Amino acid sequence: MDTASTGLTFRDATDADVDVIVALVESAYRGEPSRAGWTTEADILDGQRTDPEGVRAVIKSPDSRVLTVERDGAVVACCQLEHRGDHAYFGMFAVSPALQGAGLGKVIIAEAEWYAREVWGAQAMHMTVISVRNDLIAWYERRGYRRTGEMTPFPYGDERFGVPRRADLQFELLVKPLV
Results as ranks from 00 to 15, higher is better:
residue 1 M to W: 04
residue 2 D to R: 02
residue 4 A to S: 12
residue 6 T to H: 04
residue 7 G to W: 11
residue 7 G to L: 09
residue 8 L to Q: 02
residue 8 L to N: 02
residue 8 L to M: 11
residue 10 F to W: 04
residue 10 F to H: 05
residue 11 R to M: 00
residue 13 A to N: 07
residue 14 T to A: 15
residue 14 T to K: 13
residue 14 T to P: 08
residue 14 T to I: 12
residue 18 V to P: 00
residue 18 V to E: 02
residue 20 V to G: 01
residue 27 S to F: 04
residue 28 A to G: 11
residue 29 Y to G: 05
residue 30 R to I: 06
residue 34 S to R: 04
residue 37 G to S: 11
residue 37 G to I: 09
residue 38 W to G: 05
residue 39 T to P: 00
residue 39 T to E: 12
residue 40 T to N: 08
residue 43 D to L: 13
residue 48 Q to F: 05
residue 48 Q to L: 10
residue 49 R to W: 09
residue 52 P to L: 13
residue 54 G to V: 14
residue 63 D to M: 09
residue 65 R to S: 02
residue 68 T to E: 01
residue 68 T to W: 00
residue 73 G to C: 05
residue 73 G to R: 03
residue 74 A to H: 10
residue 77 A to R: 04
residue 78 C to S: 14
residue 79 C to S: 10
residue 80 Q to K: 13
residue 80 Q to G: 10
residue 82 E to K: 13
residue 85 G to F: 10
residue 86 D to T: 12
residue 90 F to R: 03
residue 92 M to L: 14
residue 92 M to R: 06
residue 93 F to Y: 13
residue 95 V to D: 01
residue 96 S to L: 14
residue 97 P to F: 13
residue 102 A to G: 08
residue 105 G to R: 00
residue 106 K to T: 10
residue 107 V to L: 02
residue 107 V to W: 03
residue 108 I to M: 10
residue 108 I to H: 07
residue 114 W to R: 15
residue 117 R to N: 07
residue 119 V to N: 14
residue 119 V to T: 14
residue 119 V to Y: 09
residue 121 G to T: 09
residue 121 G to W: 06
residue 122 A to W: 05
residue 124 A to G: 09
residue 128 T to V: 11
residue 132 V to I: 15
residue 133 R to Y: 04
residue 137 I to E: 08
residue 138 A to H: 12
residue 141 E to I: 01
residue 142 R to M: 07
residue 142 R to Q: 12
residue 144 G to M: 06
residue 144 G to D: 04
residue 144 G to F: 04
residue 146 R to C: 13
residue 147 R to D: 06
residue 149 G to M: 08
residue 150 E to P: 00
residue 152 T to Y: 11
residue 153 P to Y: 02
residue 157 G to Y: 15
residue 158 D to E: 14
residue 165 R to C: 06
residue 165 R to W: 05
residue 167 A to W: 05
residue 167 A to R: 15
residue 168 D to N: 13
residue 170 Q to E: 14
residue 171 F to C: 01
residue 172 E to R: 13
residue 174 L to K: 04
